[in-house]
């Protein structure tokens, strides 16, 4: 029996970091846009753009 622990560990690692990263980033975006200051809104838009890029990469992975 040949169990590929390395692949399992990398799936677990990517899932944990990816999820917390995406959710954290998106929340920064939401909080940023809920404020009035120009700088906070800019941070918010930047965070959303990063999320969109990450999702696009995810779709690219399925198609590829």
């Amino acid at each position: 029996m040949n169990i590929n622990w390395g692949a399992l560990a990398s799936v677990a690692g990517v899932s944990l970091i990816g999820t917390v990263g995406l959710v954290g980033l998106f929340t920064v975006g939401i909080v940023g846009l809920s404020r009035q200051q120009q700088s906070a809104r800019a941070t918010g838009y930047a965070a959303f753009a990063l999320c969109a890029a990450a999702v696009a990469y995810g779709i690219y992975l399925i198609v590829g």
Partner: peptide
């Protein structure tokens, strides 16, 4: 894995958004 990821992400989003 999905459960732990969801738990940590839930904590993170409530923490980041706590003052909003």
């Amino acid at each position: 894995v999905a459960g732990v990821a969801a738990m940590l992400a839930t904590r993170a989003t409530y923490r980041i958004g706590r003052d909003a």
